[in-house]
């Protein structure tokens, strides 16, 4: 449902713009790595599932993302499955064009996340869900555009209540197709 809201926003904005001026990019192949605290207090890079698309108009870019992460622990007797879902909206501005192919974008983002936790002990199972919680982010994006192919490396700092470390550093490698 929440993803639908984003799609609606995207298409409303798109429809208000001239088709010739607007470029839409879909990113089906993303590699999203975030440096997070794990249960014993240490830190490691975890991979997140990331589905995103962007719309560009002149030097402006609107990036919409759905990010999901699952974490499981325990054994056959007692185990925990946590699924976190995030919905990102980010605005980026082309701060510097390096050449005809490469550009540097800077941006700010916001959105919300929620988590679902399933706790199981033998035949007992309990599901808990959180409310939607706001987060903020800042991005630097190095983008490559060649005809209909787009590749970009984004470095993001994410500030969210339940995330550690704060801010949480993230790197996303996106490859997509523009039209």
């Amino acid at each position: 449902m929440k993803l639908n809201y984003f799609l609606v926003i995207f298409f409303i904005i798109s429809s208000l713009c001239s088709a010739q001026e607007l470029k839409v990019t879909l990113f089906p192949f993303n590699f999203d790595y975030r440096y997070v605290e794990i249960s014993n207090g240490e830190y490691q890079f975890n991979q997140f599932k990331n589905l995103s698309f962007s719309t560009n108009y002149e030097r402006h870019q609107l990036l919409l993302e759905h990010v999901e992460y699952q974490n499981s622990s325990g054994n056959q007797t007692i185990n925990f499955d946590e699924t976190t879902q995030e919905y990102h909206v980010s605005y980026l501005y082309e701060a510097h064009r390096l050449n005809s192919y490469f550009s540097l974008y800077l941006g700010l983002g916001s959105g919300f996340y929620n988590a679902k936790l399933v706790t199981r002990y033998l035949d007992q199972e309990i599901t808990d869900k959180t409310n939607n919680t706001l987060f903020l982010s800042g991005l630097i994006s190095l983008q490559f555009h060649f005809k209909f192919f787009t590749g970009q490396i984004d470095f993001r700092l994410l500030e969210a209540k339940d995330y550690r470390p704060q801010p949480t550093p993230e790197m996303i490698l996106r490859t997509g197709f523009s039209f």
Binding site: N40, S73, N75, I78, D128
Partner: peptide, 9 residues
């Protein structure tokens, strides 16, 4: 508060 993982529990 609900522990999210084995160690927290």
């Amino acid at each position: 508060f609900i522990p999210k993982d084995e160690l927290s529990t």
